[in-house]
Amino acid sequence: MLRYNIRGENIEVTQAIREYVEKKVGKIEKYFHDVPEANAHVNLKTYSDKTAKVEVTVPLPYIVLRAEETSPDLYGSVDLVVDKLERQMRKYKTKINRKARTTGLVEQPTYEFDNLGDEAEGEEDFDAAIVRTKRLSLKPMGADEAVLQMDMLGHNFFIFEDAETNGTSIVYKRKDGKYGLIETD
């Protein structure tokens, strides 16, 4: 059962919008069997150019469903996000089924997907072929230095050991040109 956390940026979340989002995003519940209660985080944004962006994140054990879409219509963006979430579930189910067929067992508990069929119809085969492996030693540094290193290398992300916490962290370049930091526990 999904619990909804719906918030708006530059838009008031009216009862009609809330009901529409809950109705549409709630459709993904039918694809799961024996799913623990989960939170659906929905972020609605409107921009000055009259476009609307919808972001949905549903963290579940062993998988995080996340999608975002921008279109001229808020309701259209919600529909597009739900379609994207359904494609993700099909791809995940296909991947798990292939793994089970090749190894004979599945290492992690998975959700049983209902109403999706054995293979995702019309979906491209998902092949996570690793074509290159790199080894690196993490150097203690601050986030600012890590951003400089990342920029000097011309990469979109950089992994480093945080000098303050001694934990592994990642800095990355966002689509808006700003930087993000991921810290591990």
Rank of each mutant, 00 (worst) to 15 (best):
L136I: 12
R135P: 00
V131D: 10
L116F: 11
N156R: 14
K24V: 12
G167Y: 08
T51W: 08
D162H: 08
R132H: 10
E12I: 00
P59A: 01
L2D: 03
N156I: 08
V78C: 01
D125R: 13
L138P: 12
E119G: 04
P59Q: 02
T133W: 09
L74Y: 06
L148H: 12
A67K: 09
F158D: 03
L105G: 11
E86Q: 04
R66N: 05
Y179W: 07
K84T: 06
K30Q: 15
R132P: 02
R87E: 10
V58R: 08
A128Y: 14
R87F: 05
R135A: 00
A16L: 10
M89C: 10
F113K: 11
R101H: 09
D114Y: 14
T94S: 14
D83E: 15
I11Y: 06
M152T: 11
T184Q: 06
M141I: 07
A52G: 10
E121V: 13
L2P: 02
A100F: 10
D144N: 13
I170N: 01
G180I: 03
K134F: 11
T102E: 15
N115A: 12
Y31D: 07
Q149R: 15
P72Y: 05
D127Q: 14
L80P: 01
L60M: 12
S137L: 06
K95Y: 13
V64Y: 02
R7Y: 03
E161F: 03
E22W: 13
V56N: 01
V58G: 02
F160C: 00
L2K: 04
R3H: 15
E68L: 01
L136F: 12
Q149L: 05
S71V: 03
G177H: 08
K53L: 04
I6L: 05
Y92E: 00
K24F: 11
